[in-house]
Design a protein around this nucleic acid. Structure first.
Lengths: 210, 210
DNA sequence: CAACATTTAAAACAGTTGTTTAGTACCGAG
DNA sequence: CTCGGTACTAAACAACTGTTTTAAATGTTG
């Protein structure tokens, strides 16, 4: 079993288990046994549980943010006028795309993002902000440009409202979808939900703007 | 030290610590030592840690939902026409009020609600749904009435978008407020944030309605 | 092939977890 | 005063936590 094999087997197992139960609720023994590797392999390859958690996030935040920034750069270079809806669509489409490429589950990604925000793990938030803050500000800046006439403080609160709606909904996607299917018999896919989210979030951002 | 004293001291400490760090990250020893009571008192009075968690939620969800339902009943009985904005205002005002009455911190309440949704505690979600599902449906029903012409599935997704924006934002209120204060020097209070949230959430709910 | 560094393995480590047990202090009723 | 039950406490319990150590296996390079 080569190194990359063990490392990625650990990451795969950790990603799934963390998303399912959270960080503290997932022991290294659970991770290594479902990954089929030795317990000590985690500390050997990653150093500590903390660093394993960060590695899990890094593995799918990096391709995502890279793809997002590339997409934004492309659209700006082409001289496109970027609307609020267009930017949200880019965000969601790139998110789906960059994950689907790797055969990764987008909902798992969202559950992890939700955990990163709510859990008591100072190191994680610090890690994410320091590593991906630039991409975040790039997106936020373009979104602010598409919303002229909005004072900055209001804009940023709404940005958080939007993030909340997105992360919260998608991280509980399975549960919500199950409830709606039971009550209305109507099943909806993740892309459909994002199609509902774009105009709703855009409307929220645009109140009193322009 | 009377029973009620010990019980409520435990609940007070648990509420603060759970909101701060989460459930698994808070040990019974931390709770009992900050409460100034014996370790075994938790299991004696509550049975288990699980039941302590539920008791913490019960203690402030019950007055909140009771007050909300009373308020909704009152407004319906008076024959008021309930708008989306009016309903959201009721929700937020009652939330603030019923907590302020008891001298409880509303943000802590929100952090706990956020945890209930994101943490891996099946028993908690089940407990909350079975205990407070009726009040939830009462509010959702009135909100749906205020949004005629919206198909039920779209309505429910938007309801979750709204919940997400609310819970996510308010549960990270301190962190967000700190960032905005640093970047813009503008400090905002919780009521101000709710005043921003009402029109934004209402706009999101109302897209294409009526 | 030999020598080296990398990787895996089993076992032990020290610390923490929630829970239980056994016993003590208390307090009002008979 | 004594009894019966409630409230509390100290101590121990067994299980589990992340991490480290020691040794064996493996692969790579000269």
């Amino acid at each position: 079993m080569s190194q990359t094999d063990t490392v990625s087997r650990i990451l795969d197992a950790a990603e799934v288990l963390f998303a399912e139960r959270g960080f503290t609720e997932t022991s290294l023994r659970t991770i290594t046994s479902t990954a089929g590797v030795n317990l000590a392999a985690v500390n050997y390859h990653f150093g500590s549980k903390k660093e394993l958690i960060q590695a899990v996030f890094e593995r799918f935040l990096t391709p995502f943010t890279d793809a997002l920034v590339r997409e934004l750069d492309r659209r700006v270079a082409e001289g496109q006028t970027l609307t609020v809806e267009g930017l949200l669509e880019s965000l969601y489409r790139v998110g789906m795309g960059s994950l689907a490429e790797q055969g990764r589950d987008p909902q798992r990604f969202m559950r992890l993002l939700g955990l990163a925000y709510t859990q008591y793990q100072g190191h994680l938030r610090r890690f994410i902000v320091s590593r991906y803050g630039d991409s975040y500000r790039r997106f936020a800046g373009l979104l602010a440009q598409a919303l002229p006439g909005l004072d900055p403080v209001t804009f940023y609160w709404r940005l958080y409202f939007m993030l909340g709606a997105t992360i919260f909904t998608l991280s509980s996607y399975d549960a919500i979808e199950a409830i709606l299917r039971e009550d209305f018999g109507a099943q909806s896919s993740l892309p459909e939900t994002l199609e509902r989210l774009v105009p709703a979030a855009a409307a929220m951002l645009k109140v009193n703007a322009e």
